[in-house]
Design a binder for these strands. Sequence first.
DNA 1: GTCTATACTCTGATAGAC
DNA 2: GTCTATCAGAGTATAGAC
Lengths: 205, 205
Amino acid sequence: MLKPRTRIQERNSKAILEAGLDVFSQHGFRGATLDQIAEVAGLSKPNLLYYFPSKDAVYLALLDHLLDTWLDPLRLMNPKGDPVTEVLSYVRRKLDLSRDYPRESRLFANEMLQGAPRMLAAIEGPLKTLVDEKAQVLRRWIAEGRIAPVHPIHLIFSIWALTQHYADFDVQVCGVLGPGHDPYAEAQEFLTLLFRRLLNPTEAT
Amino acid sequence: MLKPRTRIQERNSKAILEAGLDVFSQHGFRGATLDQIAEVAGLSKPNLLYYFPSKDAVYLALLDHLLDTWLDPLRLMNPKGDPVTEVLSYVRRKLDLSRDYPRESRLFANEMLQGAPRMLAAIEGPLKTLVDEKAQVLRRWIAEGRIAPVHPIHLIFSIWALTQHYADFDVQVCGVLGPGHDPYAEAQEFLTLLFRRLLNPTEAT
DNA sequence: GTCTATACTCTGATAGAC
DNA sequence: GTCTATCAGAGTATAGAC
């Protein structure tokens, strides 16, 4: 990406990334075209390529920013807080992310469906490291009898799956629910109940 | 699709659909190319187009077959069976589907991410009808106090999300778990526990 | 039924005027 | 910095020989 030096450059770079997010998140890397991205950004194709040297560069700039945003909610899970509250807050933050940044969620999903050719290193590196770290926290909570004994990594997977579903499968969710629903409000309630029941240490297995 | 009349036609039609499943499920409709599909199928591009008149036709043939397979596990949920057992069996069938037909799962996911341009009618029609019907069964079970009171449609969403995640995000699941894991066996155990705890009617909310 | 050859469009990227 | 013009290659699809 061109290092922005003027207001125009700032504005156009941002417009391109916005447009790229629109198009890549809907059609994946190969299905997206520079024509379409340029049109959405309100620029000519050569002008777009003045700011980013290639299609790949636009995509990589988006991915680069994505992982951090995506993992922040998990990072915020506090090892010193109340276990059930911490997990429920994490679920809420992750669901808010799906609601407020559905395109980012879909971009991520598209990359995964393709086999994560441009993100594999990040998954096996920083992402795995963070998950392992938080899984340790969950294991401690389990050992202390403060949450029910469940597989900690699959617990994290379940949070990812359940929250991202509402962004990635939005069409299906809305189509099946029909009109007059607030999917995210209902999901918030449902997921709170679900994880409360799953993790409550006083329940029998 | 050409109506198969000979063994060769039978074989080639199937090879094309297999190859199309490979490529479309990974790259989505626009990202897939006939070149690639033909190569995977072991045919020349014009020969492929002898069996299917267009790229769209291959894709539609795949989608057409997909929805039925996809909804069968839900259809099998028996209104006269034991509620918790029925839901857990449904979860197991759906998870088996993810394990045995991951490409079908990804094809479906790709179509959803694109906004379901070729499946919207099916979602708002047959799919919604089936879900509404089964949601009624769940509501009855709740009213009879045989499962805990949860939003029936979001319960179904949660089963979809949790099971499909293991197929669609396979790279991530395997990358984070690291070697020496059997994701589906672990998921089976985790999900059984999760839904048992969620639905058990004797638990307090 | 299958292939070669090809028409024609789209796509990513570059050159060069302004 | 932005545009028009353009290139080379890939893409879908068709024609026609065998």
